[in-house]
Amino acid sequence: MYLEERRRLLLEQVRRLGRVDVATAAAELDVTTETVRKDLVHLERQGFVTRTHGGAIPVQRLGFEPVNAVRESVMNPEKLRIAAAAVAELPEEGAVLIDSGTTAALVPRFMSTDSHLRVVTNSLHIMNALAAFPNITLMHLGGVFRPVSQSTVGPWAVDALRELRIDVAFVGANGFSVDHGLTTSDQSEAECKRAIVKASRRSIALLDHSKIGAEYFHRFASPADIDGIVTDSGIDADLLEDLQETIDHVVIA
């Protein structure tokens, strides 16, 4: 097993179970406990976990989240597949909203330059990516700039969303569970995402499989509030079954 693959598996486990035990992980991965400890040191330096006695827990459980640059390096092949599949959910014309988030930021790569859409976003990445599309009317939500997500949030963004009617919105989240819905670790992000869902006729969540089953502090949408989820084929079979029983429209990329 390659080093990066092993670390990815450790990160998935700590997110899914809420902690990872060094001795157990070493036995499951057939490596020494010292190897697992070094992996966890690396993941801690990257901002994903906090080491504890005998293991580690997700840093998000403590109310923090990795910066955008760190999150962009995780699950990138899966996020690319999700973004490519998400484009099929876009209407031929009308108003769409692309939320901030590392998966949503990849959507413009797969959009046609001939698209005639009005695109609303609070993401600087989306603004930059779509600025050269000649037929797109691009609108940015105002608000307080949040460096960790490279997005704008706060009352200005929420007030603007109350006046809009969006045909399709792509929404990001830190986690989704069938019991609790879509969640994130920051209150201002949650308020903005809640307003996005309310403003949209169809809300599609773009979530890589590591986020399915995870729960974070702030809920912004229940399962009934969203119309679909696009995820990747790495999702656990049992979680996928629960997901398909809860959400009418599930796309596996």
Rank of each mutant, 00 (worst) to 15 (best):
L138M: 07
I98C: 05
R81W: 12
S123C: 10
I126R: 01
E5A: 07
G154N: 05
I204L: 00
G63M: 04
Q150R: 14
A26L: 05
D238K: 14
V36M: 04
A25G: 10
L240R: 14
S177T: 14
A69I: 14
Q60I: 15
A105D: 06
V153M: 04
K38F: 11
D236V: 14
V87W: 03
D179A: 13
F145Y: 15
S177V: 11
E241Q: 13
T102P: 00
W156D: 15
A26W: 09
A129S: 14
V158M: 02
L90H: 02
H180R: 03
Q244D: 07
P108C: 08
G94H: 00
P58F: 09
D242I: 12
T33M: 13
L3E: 14
R71T: 09
T52M: 05
L240S: 11
T33S: 11
L239W: 07
T121L: 04
P134K: 13
R202W: 07
R146E: 08
F145T: 12
V49R: 01
F145D: 01
F170N: 00
E241N: 11
S233V: 15
V14T: 08
S73K: 12
R8L: 15
E44C: 05
S112F: 09
L10F: 07
I235W: 03
V96W: 04
V49M: 01
